[in-house]
Structures are given as C-alpha cells and as structure tokens.
Write a protein that binds this DNA or RNA. Sequence first.
DNA 1: CGTTAGCACTCGAATAGACGGAGTGCTAAC
DNA 2: GTTAGCACTCCGTCTATTCGAGTGCTAACG
Lengths: 349, 349
Amino acid sequence: MSDGLNERSRQILEAIIEDHIDSAEPVGSRAVTRRHPLGLSPATVRNVMADLEDLGYLCSPHTSAGRVPTEKGYRFYVDTLLKVRPLSDAEQLGIASQYQLKGLPMEELLRQAGQVLSGLSRYAGVVLAPRVATTVFRHIEFVRLSQVRILVVLVTRSGLVQNKLIESDDTPSQSELDQISNYLNQILSGLTLPQIRQKLLEEMSQEKALYDQLLGRALRLSEEAFGGDMEEKVFIEGTSNILDQPEFADVGRMRRLFRTFEQKSQLLDLLDKSQQAQGVQIFIGSESEYHEIEGCSLVTSTYGLRGGAVGSIGVIGPSRMPYSMVIPIVDYTARLITQVLNGTTSQER
Amino acid sequence: MSDGLNERSRQILEAIIEDHIDSAEPVGSRAVTRRHPLGLSPATVRNVMADLEDLGYLCSPHTSAGRVPTEKGYRFYVDTLLKVRPLSDAEQLGIASQYQLKGLPMEELLRQAGQVLSGLSRYAGVVLAPRVATTVFRHIEFVRLSQVRILVVLVTRSGLVQNKLIESDDTPSQSELDQISNYLNQILSGLTLPQIRQKLLEEMSQEKALYDQLLGRALRLSEEAFGGDMEEKVFIEGTSNILDQPEFADVGRMRRLFRTFEQKSQLLDLLDKSQQAQGVQIFIGSESEYHEIEGCSLVTSTYGLRGGAVGSIGVIGPSRMPYSMVIPIVDYTARLITQVLNGTTSQER
DNA sequence: CGTTAGCACTCGAATAGACGGAGTGCTAAC
DNA sequence: GTTAGCACTCCGTCTATTCGAGTGCTAACG
C-alpha cells in the first residue's frame, strides 16, 4: 500500500486508536485481541504494533506500557480509517431543539452555538465570528451624538451590525450626515470592505472632493469609519468541560491550554485557516507549528451565506477525541447556523 | 474589648494572617515569633492561638500543623486590622499607563479594565457592565433595514450604546421612523428605562394614540425597543491567572470555580449587591450563602457617573489574598473608569 | 497570674523497599 | 507467517520507617 500499511495493520491501528479514545489509557496487545475479534494472537498484534511504532503511528510512554497514538496516528485515522455516520433525523432534531434562534442578534446566536457544541461534545466550543473585512457592505448610517462624536452603524449583507464611535472636532450636522450616508450607500453598495477602502482612495484622488466640500467630508468620515481595528472575534464557550478530561489532571498542561484560550491569537489563526477550505476540517495537536495546543485537536466547519464562508465554528478538546461523534455534530451545527443566517438574510431582500 | 480580643491577640492574628497570605501555608507559633518581634515566646503565642481558634478566627488543618485563618478571621482582618496604604502617584501612573482609553467603545474599555486588574493582581478581573435598566435615556434612533426589520440604536447618558433588532410585519418608512424617534427623544429624554416603560403605558392609555396613527406606531415600536432582555453583562478576564495559585492545585476545586465563572449568575448577584453600597467592598468565601466560591474572595468597587454607580469592577481570587495591595488597586481602577466615563460624558453635553 | 521552658505526643510528608501486574521483545516451534 | 512461551522491564501501589514541624500540657519562674 502507498502508506506502507496493509489491511490488517490498518485494522489494528484503528482498533488501538478507538480503544484509546474510549479508555484514555495506553492499549496493549492483549486488550486489542480481546475487544476486537480479528482472529489473531497477542503476539502477532505485538509484531504489528512494533511496525506501527517504527512507522510513527504509535508510541509507548515507557517500555512496558501499551501503545498510544501519535499525532501522525490520529492524522492517519481521521484521514483514512474513520467513517463518519451522518446524524439521524432524531439526533438532528435533538440538536436543533437546543437553540432559541428567534430574534437573537448574531453575536448571541454564535455564542449559543458555541455553548451547544460544548454541551454536546463535552469539550469546549469555539466560534470565529464573521469578519467584517470580508463581508459585503449593505448599509451605513451616521448618528450625531454630540459636537465631537458620531456613531457609525454599519450593516453588512449578512445582517451583521457593527458599531463604531468616531470622534472629530468638526462634525457635520445630522442632515449633512444623512446626505453623506445616502451618498455612501449609493456608491459602496455590494462592495467588500477592502474594495471599499480602495474605492475611497480612488475617489479622493480624483480631486472631485476638492471642490465638493460635502463629498470631501463624506470621504474623510468614511475613511475613519472603515479604517481601524474591526478586529475579529473568537468566542470560546464551555472551557470548564475540558477540565473533566483525564489528560488535564496535570495542572501545568491545563494552565498552558487556558492561557492559549485567553490569548486567542493561536485559535484565531487556526479558525481563519479553516475558513479557506470547505466543510469539516481537523487540526491535530501541534501540527503546523501550533505548539501551544499540543495534545489537543480542533474540529471545525465553516458557516456562511450562499456565496462562501463568513466564519468558523468548532470544538477543541484533547486529540483523544471521539471524532466519529464530534465531526457530524460540528458539521450539522455549522449547516444549521448557515441556514439561520440565510433565513434572516432572505427576509431582508 | 467588644469582640473579645485584646491588643496582643489582634497583633498575633494579624501576624498570622499576613504570614499566611505570604506563604500560603499554615502558620506555626515559632514562625510568628521569628518574623514578628513581639517579644513573646512561642509558648505564649500558642496559648493565644488556641484562644483565637476557640473564637473561630483560626483553625488547624490537622493536629500538628500550624493555623490557618477562617473566613471569620479574614473578615475581622479586613474590617478591623487592615490598614490600606493609598497608591503613590507613581503607582497610579503605572496603572493608568496600561490603558489605551482613546475612543474605545465602553464594552472594550471595561474588558480592558478587567484585564489590567487581572494583570496587576495576578487574579481574575471581573466587571459588571452598566445595566441599561438603570441608566438614563439620552437618544434613540431607528434605522429601517428592510420591510420587516428595524435596528434600534439606544444611547444612554453615560454614552452606552445599545442595539436591538426588532421585527414587525408593518414597518413604517424611514421618514416616519425619523418622526417617531424625534417624538420619543422629546418626551423621554432624561428618564430611566423603568420610568420610560411606565410613561409609555400612561401615554398609551391616554387614548391620544387612538386617533394619532403615527403616535400609536411610535408607542408600539418603543414598547418593543425598550422591552425584552436587556440583560446584564459580566466579564471575567484573566481567569488563567488563578491557575497559578497553590490552593487550586487540586483539580476538583478549580473545576468548581471555573463552572462558577461560566454560569456567572453567582458573580452577577455579588456584583449587583456591591453596587448598592459606595466604595470598595469585600466578599469573603461562602459568606451569605454563596457556597460556590468557597475559599475565594471578591474585592469590588463601583464606577459610574456623578449621580451614582452604574456598574462594578473588581478582582476575584483565593481568600488568601494580599488585600492591602488589591484594595487600593481596585479602588483606583474604579475611580479611573469613572473619570473616563464622566470625561466622555461631559464632552457630550 | 501571666509567661515561659520543657517534653511527650500527633500527624503529615518524604523516603525506601517490596510486590504484583501489565506489557513488551525475542526465540523457537508450529 | 503465526503463535506459544519466557525472561525482562517498568509502573503503580502498598507498607514501613523516618523526620520534622507543631501542638497541648504541665510545671517552674518572676
């Protein structure tokens, strides 16, 4: 076989990984033969296990313990061995019924999704909220709060509402602001924020602004409104679930994980990456230099609108994770979120 | 003395508690005499310690360990023995410099305050965000998003911006909405939300609405806008700091604490309670039936506008906490926040 | 009478050794 | 190629022992 494993080796590897996922303990050769009727003796299994260890799929914590999957082992398992059973209708309903989707603002909806995922998986739920930067402009409104402060309300096509307060010494009157927003709504509709920035630059360089004072103001204002830190938001829900996992009985490991949760930048990177691709994606341990989440895996999927993904949602837990349960749950949840978002969007049209 | 402690007993109690705060370990009689020049022998101290134990200020984990403060002990300490040294100018500057206050929306400001508190104290920072329900109405704006959806932007006098999406089959046009918001801004300015609700009810019952269709719509709309779940928000920042505390080496305790953090309702209660009073308040352990935070203390203060408190901010950590450091930090931070909020408010006038 | 020295006692933490069990790797036989 | 057998390794657990810190009590001291 291309990966150097014959059918039997695969079966044994699968058996070991699944036993380990169940038990959280190293798996020995006897245990494999007992729980899996392969018609082989422990000795044979031992030989195969030695081979699997040589190939890097397994390792032993010490001489006389059983074997434990390596990251490479898990990777091979999820890529090749794992067969995910789709959720039954009843299961889908069970999940869907945990949501109260009615009239929630998007942020709350996403948080809730994270909580539900966390509850179902018994791990932590993670959510990458839609990035304003990639969504499509729909509507802008300026509200003059005072002589120096203006509230900018930005609505994207997906229904995401973003507020920003900008301060300026020279705020236009409300009626001027209304004109400005009318103008911006006209020329910017349907563009993404990066496109908008470029467009604004073009407009400004065209010098029209020089003889149209209002236009000039509009452009300066919108520069402020669209610039700056529309930062991306990561929610992590149900972190305390992870405390139940035996692998985190060690306080040091826990601490590292929670620090990672707090920084969020690592997770943000990963969730961001997951958005490039379609469907469920799985990140295992410190693959691709994310050392802080060593021993953990992240199962994500993307949600979004017809067009494409606007965010990611998933579950983080120890690499020893029942992928065959978690994957369909994440998958279905992402679809559910997508449905809801599209539902409200369609009303908007 | 009224509490049954003479001067010497107090000194010894103070010494024990402070030693324990430093060391996290039971304090023995010898240790007290060594580190505190009271001119007493260990035996004498032992006698006093036995008395203090009888009175409930101390207890021993087991026969031949030193003594550890009880909750009653900590309570007596913070109420009677503790003398807080106000922060020096340099220290104040050191804290203030950690903030980037410019142009942050309030939620971010508060989160940041929580993070700074957490960083300074090495415990977790907690923040109760202003409750919309008690703040004063300043401005309302309706933005028509679609045939069935309206965005309500509500600005309170303290500068808090609250969004709400409401859905209705029969949305007025934008110009009607503008009329409505003008009307509401006129009649509601300066009222609190509960007052507003009452006022709305009155207006509606006055039947003026019956023959003024627009007014009727306005009232129905604002009913929706001001009703519903303007829930209170608690932020907890820097939870992973707490993992460093030796008292949480035990995983079970940690788990309970983190669960409490996730539920937030306990903390919300306490923070809410802290808002009743002025200045720094200290909640110790499971005093007043909050059993979930047994062994933990909460140091809070309120921030707000001239008028009164709109929220609380504080630090949660083990009861064995250097109160003499934490209290002035919390106190100063709360003042700082208040200043900033009032600063932006005054600009608004 | 308050304070102190002395002493027996208690208990937990740390250390070391013994034991059992689970599991391996190797070799030789099937 | 597979399997049985066997020696070996190593961990986790249990026990016994020791050590030290700290207490409570009693008697002596000023």
